[in-house]
Structure formats: C-alpha cells, structure tokens
C-alpha cells in the first residue's frame, strides 16, 4: 500500500492576542496509507482540528512537512474535500446546486454535472429533496448533502471534522452505517476527527489518540473487527475500554485546567456511583 498522507514532525504555533505564542501541536508524525479509515481522537483543544486544517490547506505549518500523494500542500483543493461539523452548505443554493458546485468550478457542463450530482444525492437518499434549500432540511439530511457534495468531486481523501457531533444519537447511528457503506464502496482514504470514542472505534481501522497541550499523538489503536461493523462486537468494546483508560489522564488534565482546581480527580473510582445510591428511588 502506498502512503497517501505523510505528516512528519509537524508543529503549529498561534500568535495570541497578548503577543505570546501558543503551541497547539508539537512534533506530530503519522502516515495514512491509501484507502484507510483513520480517526483522530482527543479531548477538546488538543489540536485535532488544527491537524485537519493544516491538511486541508487552510493553515500553514510552523515546522515540519505534510505531504499528500508525495506532494507538499500549498492551498485548499478538491483532492482533499472537507466535511465540516456545521455542514457548510451554501444557503442560497438548492441541494442539487450545492452538490454540483464543485463540478461547476471544475468546468463540467451543466447537464453532466447535474447528472453526476443526482447520482451522489441518490446515494445518500436525498433524491426527494434535491430542489430544496438547505434550511428546509433536518440536521442529518444537511450532513448527508454535505457528504454528497464532497464525494461528487471524487477526492482522494475525505477530511471529516466532527461531522456528526451536532446530531442526535439516533441520526448519528444511521449516518455511521451510511458512511461505512460509502467507504466500503468507494475505498476513499478518510481522516475522521472526533471526540467520541465509540464513534471512532465503530468506524475506523485505526484510532490515533491525542494528548493535549501541546497536542501530540499519544497512542495508536488498531481496530481489528469485521466489516461491516456490528455495535455489539466484543472487539469494539475491548478497544473502547483501552482507549478510555488511555484518555483518562488527558481528561483529568483538561478538567483541572478548566476548573482551576489542582485537587480535582476523575481517575478510577473517584466518581461516585449514583446507580447504587439511587437504587429504587425512581419507582
């Protein structure tokens, strides 16, 4: 397998308003081979979205190199389309025009691009809503339209920045299935950003867990479970538990910082078990 994404010794610093520099990422290195589904998992503020922004070309690295297909990244482009948390559909265009937008930029004729767009819209089960405007769709439908808009470009890489974070649980489960199905069908390389452990394990071949301040790759977990994934698979539960333990330290660091309380601890057994204390009280 050839490496699709190569990230080597990448650091990223931002200038803060008071003039001090803030280190978001420190010496991050990893590679993703073609066709792999990889999740970046970490608590908020660990710099996982920054990695995606660097890969997408929205921001520049302070140090290190990022290569896609052996080429350095210069600017955003349709070879690595981003699916955002807040869909980013253009409200002045219908679903069809939104999905066809990228093809229009590429110079594809109207008839052909509408046909290609309709294919993708059908693939995400939105045929009935092709002529609607984004605000007329539900959250899950918007996200599906955004995925169709990305896929129609036939990108080598799909960058997904917490795409399902704003959805309700049921919708999210349905979209997990759909995304897995799309991935199995198209074989795209996917980098999926999330803070949801379950989601990461459920979807990915490999989960990269990040530590925070400054952001680094802490540990890597390979999820060797059968596809299509089954939520009750014990392998998934096992990996989930391992990641949970790995993240406990990080969570504590974040909580301490946000609460400004050094003595606070959420480590094992520190959280009281409400189930026992309240047993029967709801009857």
């Amino acid at each position: 397998m050839t490496e699709m994404i190569e990230i080597d010794g990448v650091s990223k610093r931002f200038k803060q308003r008071d003039g001090n520099e803030f280190q978001v990422l420190e010496d991050v290195s990893f590679t993703i081979p073609e066709g792999e589904f990889v999740s970046l998992l970490g608590p908020s503020g660990c710099g996982k979205s920054t990695i995606l922004n660097l890969l997408a070309g929205f921001e520049k690295v302070s140090q290190g190199t990022i290569k896609v297909n052996d080429g350095l990244i210069k600017e955003p482009g349709p070879d690595r389309v981003v699916v955002f948390q807040e869909h980013g559909l253009f409200p002045w265009l219908t679903v069809l025009d939104n999905v066809a937008f990228g093809l229009k930029q590429r110079g594809v004729g109207k008839k052909e691009r509408n046909q290609l767009a309709m294919e993708q819209i059908r693939a995400v089960h939105l045929s009935k809503f092709a002529d609607r405007y984004p605000h007329e769709l539900s959250g899950g439908m918007k996200q599906r339209a955004a995925i169709a808009r990305a896929l129609v470009m036939d990108p080598q890489i799909l960058l997904m920045d917490e795409p399902f974070a704003a959805l309700d649980e049921q919708t999210r489960l349905v979209l997990h299935q759909e995304l897995e199905e799309i991935w199995l069908r198209t074989g795209k390389t996917i980098l999926f950003i999330t803070h949801n452990i379950r989601e990461a394990v459920m979807l990915s071949d490999r989960v990269l867990v990040m530590s925070t301040r400054p952001g680094k790759i802490k540990k890597e977990f390979v999820v060797q479970a059968a596809r299509p994934r089954d939520g009750s698979d014990s392998v998934l539960h096992y990996v989930e538990k391992q990641i949970m333990d790995c993240l406990a330290d990080e969570l504590e660091k974040v909580v301490k910082e946000e609460m400004g309380d050094e003595s606070y601890s959420i480590k094992k057994n520190a959280v009281s078990d409400h189930t026992f204390g309240n047993m029967g009280s709801g009857i």
Binding site: G57, P76, G77, P78, F84, F90, F101
Partner: peptide, 16 residues
C-alpha cells in the same frame, strides 16, 4: 465556513 467550504471545492480565492 462558506469560504473554507468553497475553497475546498476548488473556487480558489479570486474571481470565482
């Protein structure tokens, strides 16, 4: 987000 979405779909930053 609209600017980013557009760029990732290949508008560039110019006339388009």
């Amino acid at each position: 987000i609209y600017l980013r979405a557009a760029q990732t779909l290949g508008t560039g930053t110019g006339w388009k």
